[in-house]
Amino acid sequence: MKEVTFRVFRGDKEKGELKEYKVPLSEGMVVLDAIHEIQATEANDLAVRWNCKAGKCGSCGAEINGKPRLMCMTRMDVLPMDKPVTVEPMKRFPLVKDLVTDVSWNFEVNKRIRPLKPQPRQADGTHRMMQMDVERIQEFHKCIECFLCQNVCHVMRDHKITDFIGPRFLIRCATLVMHPLDTENRLRELKDDFRIGYCNITKCCTEVCPEEIGITDNAIIPLKERVAGAFYDPLAWLWRLLTGKKADQRT
């Protein structure tokens, strides 16, 4: 049976190194299978977070040959096996141990976003939404919160800017801003608190998204356009002056 060499990061936030392991290759194998094999045979103390093994829980994000991916969705046959396969933890987040990182910063950011505040129910006690009104945001609901997009975004990863909420949470904001029933105005906080202006549309978040959500084109750019309309467009400002509408009024 063919063997593949893995170089897996072992260590904690103080120190660490890449350690080599040999894993027998089997048909349909994914990287997470190999990590489990290493854990079962050679390194029982190898720390790895995983859950569903089906690309739906978003737990097993890592950097495989330098690219942020889900380990459970990375088949071995897409990797060059003539060289060792490198598996490292996500670099953006503080390391806990081996392949496990502390992603709790994301949960704190999430708390800063005001939840949906829907319109009053209709006379029959229901909320009705037409398909054409919700199809845009249905795409955003596919997000599995793997935080690979937060990990790869250079604003946080390289420039260490922490007041930018990142692609995952701009997706959540887009879900709310475009929601047909939401009554909140969120454009000013997008600009001033969540700092959408830091995103320079280099689309790495979209490239790494395992759910193939059009993060940049369908969420961030439409949000930027709304912010531009509310705060940077002199014609829109003049229009609002004449009509008495507010900068972040919902339509």
């Binding site: 330098g66 690219k67 604003v155 390289d158 420039h159 202006g197 320079n200 912010v227 940077y232 467009d233």
Partner: peptide, 27 residues
Amino acid sequence: PPACAVAAAPHKYRGERALFIFQNLHR
């Protein structure tokens, strides 16, 4: 950055500030 997961240039990044604020006038 030059490419995804490749470290960006070290100079200070400020996003849409100063001259780059004019990017908002695309329309």
